[in-house]
Write a protein that binds this DNA or RNA. Structure first.
Length: 84
DNA sequence: GTTGAGCGTT
């Protein structure tokens, strides 16, 4: 099952909470993580969101991919490394 | 105090 989404193009200001909150309206977000630098801990501008079901994940991809978040266009797609 | 394609961390 592919429930994890790759989210790119995020503004620098976005954090885990903002990411989860943005996807929460499409289904149950199991986890939302913004990848940040190991040393400076600044946002790398992309992250991962895991939904409770693949249907919700697919819905979020269909509705949010190519749209804007906080004024910046974001990329939403099924992530690699499937959760199976 | 910056940057802008891609696929992390336990």
């Amino acid at each position: 099952m592919s429930k994890r989404l790759f989210v790119g193009g995020l503004p620098w200001a976005v954090d885990d909470h903002a990411l989860q909150d943005h996807f929460a309206g499409f289904g149950e977000v199991v986890s939302a993580t913004v990848i940040r630098d190991r040393e400076t801990q600044r946002s790398r501008g992309f992250g991962f969101v895991e939904f409770a079901s693949d249907a919700e994940a697919a819905k979020a991809v269909d509705d949010l991919d190519g749209t804007e978040m906080e004024g910046r266009q974001i990329t939403v797609s099924i992530a690699k490394s499937p959760g199976v």
